[in-house]
Design a binder for these strands. Structure first.
Length: 599
DNA sequence: CGTGTTTGACCTGCGC
DNA sequence: GCGCAGGTCAAACACG
């Protein structure tokens, strides 16, 4: 990536940040600020901000006209009625205007992504030189799980000179890995694996034990390298996603092949084992099982790290799961968080009807439960659960639960960490993942063009918008987009949690330690992860981020960013979900389950 | 015929 | 060491 591209990206980031505000007032404010602070360069370059300004001006005009009309009314009742009508009309106009703004914002994001894509294409055309690792983090790829091999300080030091550049580039990355491992020297890996356009991560995994090798391979590995195999058994982060789904599996964007099925103890529903088939050697696997208590809840557990670029439609899930895995492993490597103890501030978000209540003592809050020793020992798989369901009995108020937030889910069996993204409105939580058809109910798919009336809770979510925009382009399936929104929201919710931030900070500091600059494709772990979150955070902080001298800056910068983001959340307003999720299918239809039960 | 699924057998780790 | 449970393999089968 040349310097010009970097600058261009930073400018785009800045413009997007200017566009991204919490409300119309904020938009106007941002507009004025931009006019007075020389952001004209950005707008001139992108040709988008002027449109926003024009629309802002029109909004102000509308508001002034409205106030004038109000004064002219004499009859109080008539005046009130007329006022209401005017307000409604204004509201509609403002919605339209804001939707256009959002549209422009998405267009900006698309522009930005186009730049990134072009660069990626350039890089992919190259024959993977040694320095490529530095660039690879920009690839859109999924890395679930993480490796926990100890950081190699030598490498950290040797790569520290590149860290600044890496940070910058990774800041633009959509890499979704969540590894803490410090990469091995690029020369050794690349030398042994010269042809790795899509499998650049595999050797690293093998070395670090992140892979999930078949038993045969594992045997071979054992014969060759006991240390590696031992690590393989010890560290396998899993991310379990709970979602209401009336189809056999969630459509998470990846291609899976079923390779086994078992009836797990304590659950009459069989557990299906899937293997990622996007790439032949991809070690990522997932387990799909219905919740015993609530058959409508599908529990999908992801494990492993993709060693190939992912379809964009899969990146949302990947980011969420990797975020969760990152949180989990960071916590397990540092200290156990105490449920609810870290809820020092309140973070609430209402994304398309999916409420995220973070750290709210009075409502459902995400509680991060790091591996219970008994659980971990039983499974050797520290697991985090993302609960995207809303129990019918409004479990959101069950803040007294220690092990989980969803009373219907036996988290103890599957996970030691539970994260609830439950909606407070059951209807909104009826996420239909299966087959990828997630219905907006009465809301058309094009609703995303009317994000104006949507209350995104926090600032407008660039991450969601990005996903939306890009997926509209590349994957017009509404299901994927909806899924992506949800997952992106989940990622944001996860990363907004103070527990997560603290755990992540500790992990990044202690494990990544600023030395994970090998930038081996998806390497960099939480480093990449934190950077990925820039999409959902204040993008303009990339400046401070890129200025960090080493990988530590990643954590600190990201966390600072998150903190500032949280402070902004104090002004959040929670509106009724403007875009509730609803199932388009009967929740009672489980043909596939019936089939499964035969087993 | 190729691809994906099913399913019984097998392997492995863990607790007793 | 034994049994149990989770996880995986691979032949058989189904499907387009």
């Amino acid at each position: 990536m040349n310097i010009l591209d970097k600058k261009e990206k930073e400018k785009i980031f800045q413009v997007m940040e200017d566009t991204k505000t919490a409300g119309l007032g904020g938009l106007v404010k941002e507009e004025k600020r931009a006019e007075s602070s020389g952001d004209e360069d950005n707008s001139r370059e992108l040709g988008k901000i002027p449109t926003v300004r024009t629309e802002m001006s029109s909004m102000e005009t509308i508001l002034r006209a409205s106030s004038t009309i109000k004064k002219d009314q004499e009859d109080p009742l008539e005046s009130a009625k007329a006022e209401m009508g005017e307000v409604r009309e204004e509201n509609e106009r403002l919605k339209m205007i804001l939707s256009r703004i959002v549209k422009d914002y998405q267009s900006l994001q698309m522009q930005f992504y186009g730049i990134v894509e072009q660069e990626e294409a350039k890089k992919s055309g190259d024959t993977a030189p040694v320095d490529q690792e530095i660039e690879e983090p920009e690839l859109v790829s999924l890395s679930l799980g993480r490796t926990a091999s100890e950081p190699k300080k030598d490498e950290k030091n040797s790569n520290s000179s590149k860290s600044k550049e890496d940070d910058d580039q990774e800041g633009l990355s959509l890499g979704l890995d969540c590894k803490f491992e410090v990469s091995k020297p690029a020369s050794t890996e690349k030398a042994s694996n010269p042809s790795q356009e899509n499998s650049f991560e595999e050797p690293k995994e093998e070395d670090a034990g992140e892979t999930w090798p078949p038993s045969k391979i594992l045997k071979a590995m054992r014969s060759g390298d006991d240390e590696v195999s031992q690590q393989t058994h010890v560290k396998k982060a899993r991310v379990s996603v709970r979602a209401r789904c009336d189809t056999p599996t969630m459509n998470d964007g990846c291609q899976w092949r079923k390779y086994g099925q078992k009836i797990a103890r304590g659950n009459p529903c069989p557990r299906a084992y899937y293997r990622c088939t996007v790439a032949p050697a991809c070690p990522v696997r997932k387990q799909v099982q219905r919740c015993a208590e609530d058959m409508s809840i599908l529990i999908t557990t992801y494990e492993g790290t993709h060693n190939h670029p992912l379809p964009v439609s899969a990146t949302a899930m990947a980011s969420t799961t990797s975020a969760a895995a990152c949180m989990l492993m960071s916590g397990s490597s540092s200290s156990r968080s105490i449920p609810g103890s870290s809820a020092t501030n309140t973070t609430s978000a209402d994304l398309h009807g999916l409420n995220f209540n973070l750290g709210d003592n009075t409502r459902a809050r995400p509680s991060f439960y790091l591996p219970n020793s008994s659980i971990s020992s039983a499974t050797s798989h520290p697991t985090i659960t993302l609960d995207l369901t809303a129990p019918p009995s409004s479990s959101a108020s069950s803040s007294s639960q220690n092990n989980r937030l969803s009373p219907n889910f036996p988290v103890q069996r599957y996970s030691s960490t539970s994260f609830n993204l439950s909606s407070t409105e059951p209807n909104n939580s009826q996420l239909t993942w299966g087959n990828g058809y997630l219905s907006y109910g009465a809301q058309p798919y094009t609703k995303n063009q009317q994000l104006g009336p949507l209350n995104l809770g926090r600032q407008p979510q660039p991450q969601e918008h990005f996903y939306q925009s890009y997926m509209q382009k590349n994957n017009p399936a509404p299901s994927q987009q909806s899924l992506t929104e949800t997952i992106a929201a989940a990622t944001k919710a996860i990363t907004s949690d103070p527990s997560f931030r603290s755990a992540l900070a500790a992990a990044i500091t202690s494990i990544v330690g600023g030395g994970s600059t090998g930038a081996q494709g998806n390497q960099g772990g939480c480093e990449n992860f934190g950077q990925n979150l820039k999409w959902g955070e204040n993008i303009n902080t990339i400046t401070s981020y890129t200025s960090t001298p080493n990988g530590n800056g990643c954590a600190s910068s990201y966390l600072n960013r998150s903190s500032s983001s949280n402070t902004q959340q104090g002004s959040l307003m929670i509106l009724p979900p403007a875009l509730p999720f609803s199932t388009s299918k009967s929740a009672s239809a489980f043909p596939a389950d019936t089939r499964d039960h035969i087993n």
